[in-house]
């Protein structure tokens, strides 16, 4: 081999090595310790000497088909909850893009549901939410988009139950400041994971953990 072909040969080998190195790293990162059950997130309470884990309180909302949705609608299911509004220009489009992935992944699995709370209930009537859901091509039974409360009520509910940011802020679009978390809730209404719904890799981990929870608890 002369000098030039040797250099080319080494360049090709180094490129191949670099690609091999990149593809070896295929184990996806995990949010929570894979050797322990998913954590139960949130402050536990001590009542009459017993420790009670943090649990989502009972609720009653109205979804995009104008049906009443309560905690009973999710009996025996695990669900992913988030907070959004249909005209939110900043993070919600990314959240919807990612939640569609969860919807599609578990479309045929009745043990999994999605609950999206509107933070702009005055504008997001069931009709508006229906148009939004239809445009996204999602099924009501899988993905409930809910309204039917005051803005202050849902802010408080989101903060105390789902531990998410949801508040009035005159500097935010429409005066609504909120976080982009996807909250994984098990069939006992315990929070088992929190994921940034605007980041695809975080939602990869969510989808992974939903499958884990299904394996562990069903």
């Amino acid at each position: 081999m002369n000098n030039f072909t040797e250099k080319i040969f080494l360049l090709v080998v180094s490129l191949l090595l670099a690609f091999a190195g990149a593809s070896c790293n295929s184990q996806p990162p995990q949010k929570y310790d894979p050797n322990k059950p998913l954590p139960v997130i949130g402050p536990s309470k001590r009542v009459d000497g017993k420790v009670l884990t943090h649990q989502i309180e009972p609720f009653s909302f109205v979804d995009q088909d104008s049906n009443i949705v309560t905690e009973k609608s999710f009996e025996g299911k695990l669900f992913v909850a988030d907070f959004f509004f249909s005209t939110c220009p900043d993070i919600c489009p990314k959240m919807s893009q990612q939640m569609v992935r969860v919807h599609d992944e578990f479309l045929k699995d009745e043990r999994v549901a999605i609950l999206s709370h509107s933070l702009d209930p005055a504008y997001d009537t069931p009709k508006v939410l229906k148009e939004y859901a239809t445009a996204l091509g999602v099924e009501t039974q899988k993905w409930h988009m809910v309204t039917g409360y005051e803005r202050s009520e849902i802010n408080k509910f989101g903060q105390s139950n789902y531990l998410v940011t949801a508040m009035e802020d005159s500097n935010a679009p429409k005066g609504i400041l909120h976080g982009g978390n996807f909250v994984l809730v098990d069939k006992n209404r315990n929070i088992r994971g929190m994921y940034d719904g605007t980041i695809a890799e975080e939602v990869d981990m969510l989808i992974h953990d939903i499958k884990r929870l299904l394996n562990e608890e069903y």
Partner: peptide, 15 residues
């Protein structure tokens, strides 16, 4: 890009 996507791909019938 938030709505129309990083590559102008949009999102289903929404955007």
């Amino acid at each position: 890009a938030n709505c129309h996507g990083d590559s102008g791909e949009g999102l289903r019938s929404l955007y």
